[in-house]
Nucleic acid binder design. Structure first.
Length: 393
RNA sequence: ACAUUACCCAAUGA
């Protein structure tokens, strides 16, 4: 039972639906296990994490499952994580009983999608708040780059932990308010890698590479565990720390520095690989970029978009379109990149075809369209697009 | 024993 649980958890981590189903079958074959609520809940959760809402619902509706508040909350999260926010809300509303975690889950779901007003409404409607409720709101506003609201929320909190502070640090960093970031950082009761990483990312977004590197260098490396300076150092670096610092160099076109870090890393994930791709892209090394793209262990929509953008920057429209057509997934960023590939290379016709075909448009897509009409001497058309554009926050 | 929150990669602009 313990090992079954561990197996299911590992399926969640690697999103292995096939193995999850096998384990589920094994559970169903055992009279004890199949009515075990703990295991049933874990099965539902695992299906959700593996992207199969159908299986999750099926397990939830099974006669062997007598749902408790955990099961319901897991369903809410499963719907939300698979893009079914309205279903999540419906599940939440039909819960026979709710606890604070159920409330926090639905708030986090809306917050994650940027539905700040809904999240705020539910936050105000819930009977009691805990740190997680507050933190979810702080990070939602922080991610939406609403510095003032983030600050108001943060200042209204009854108590703070490192998660709350990291959210606030992120907001200050994005806004370039380093004085406040520093003040907050120095006053924190404890630091961990995430809070330091937020500082590195904030400095990076304003191009303060040297400052970011100082923080990076002051964090503990794996090597200095018995260093006499240990007490004076910040917490130990993790994978995100390395990725953040490398991304700083990549975005700045500092290929050599990025490569050095990439080679020094003890472990890498797809974000590390995408960052090094970007380093080559920014340095204009298209051939190496293509080689790396083929060679990397896995690719996601970010990897494809990075190469797509590089093609566009180098006027390689045919390659760009060919790549776009063979992308396994496209999101609003990749669509907008393809759109801009055409506008930046003067092909308004194709650009408009893409724009009209886009399944979803972001504020960036609309801004680009307006800018394109302006740049091509069509102020009246630009105004038309501007008027057609929805209002954003 | 099981559910909820923070930090890293790609598109426009400041």
């Amino acid at each position: 039972q313990i090992s079954l649980a561990a197996e299911l958890r590992s399926c969640s981590t690697v999103k292995d639906l096939t193995r999850a189903k096998k384990i589920h079958q094994a559970i169903l074959r055992n009279n004890q296990h199949r009515k075990d609520r703990y295991l049933n809940n874990l099965v539902i959760e695992t299906y959700g994490k593996c992207g199969s809402l159908a299986e999750a619902c099926h397990a939830f509706d099974s006669p062997f499952c007598s749902p408790n508040v955990f099961s319901w909350t897991i369903m809410v999260t499963a719907f939300a994580e698979n893009g079914k926010l309205e279903e999540a809300k419906r599940a939440f509303d039909s819960m026979p009983e709710k606890n604070i975690v159920s409330w926090n889950s639905i708030i986090a779901a809306f917050a994650r999608e940027g539905r700040l007003e809904v999240a705020k409404g539910m936050f105000e409607a819930m009977p009691v708040h805990d740190l997680v409720s507050w933190n979810s709101m702080v990070t939602a506003f922080s991610r939406a780059r609403k510095l003032d609201s983030t600050r108001l929320l943060f200042d209204s909190m009854p108590e703070w932990d490192v998660v709350a502070c990291t959210g606030m640090l992120h907001a200050f960093g994005e806004a370039g308010d380093f004085a406040n970031a520093q003040r907050l950082f120095e006053g924190m009761a404890e630091w961990n890698a995430a809070s330091c990483n937020a500082v590195i990312a904030g400095l990076t977004s304003s191009g303060k590479l040297e400052e970011a590197r100082k923080v990076f260098d002051t964090m503990m490396s794996e090597v200095v565990e018995n260093d006499p300076q240990r007490e004076t150092l910040l917490p130990e670096r993790n994978l995100v720390t390395w990725n953040s610092m490398m991304a700083a160099y990549s975005q700045a076109g500092k290929l050599e520095e990025a490569k050095v870090l990439f080679d020094r890393m003890r472990s890498r994930n797809i974000v590390s690989w995408n960052s090094i791709l970007q380093a080559y892209a920014q340095a204009g090394c298209i051939e190496e970029l293509e080689q790396l793209f083929e060679l990397m262990p896995e690719r996601n929509v970010v990897s494809f978009t990075c190469l797509l953008q590089a093609y566009a920057d180098n006027g390689l429209l045919l390659q760009a379109k060919r790549l776009f057509d063979r992308m396994p997934d496209r999101n609003v960023v990749s669509w907008t990149t393809m759109f801009q590939a055409y506008t930046q290379n003067g092909d308004l016709e194709q650009a408009k075809l893409i724009f009209n075909a886009m399944p979803e448009r972001s504020v960036v897509s609309w801004n680009s369209m307006v800018a394109t009409e302006c740049a091509s001497g069509h102020p009246a058309k630009a105004k038309g697009v501007f008027d057609a554009m929805p209002e954003w926050d």
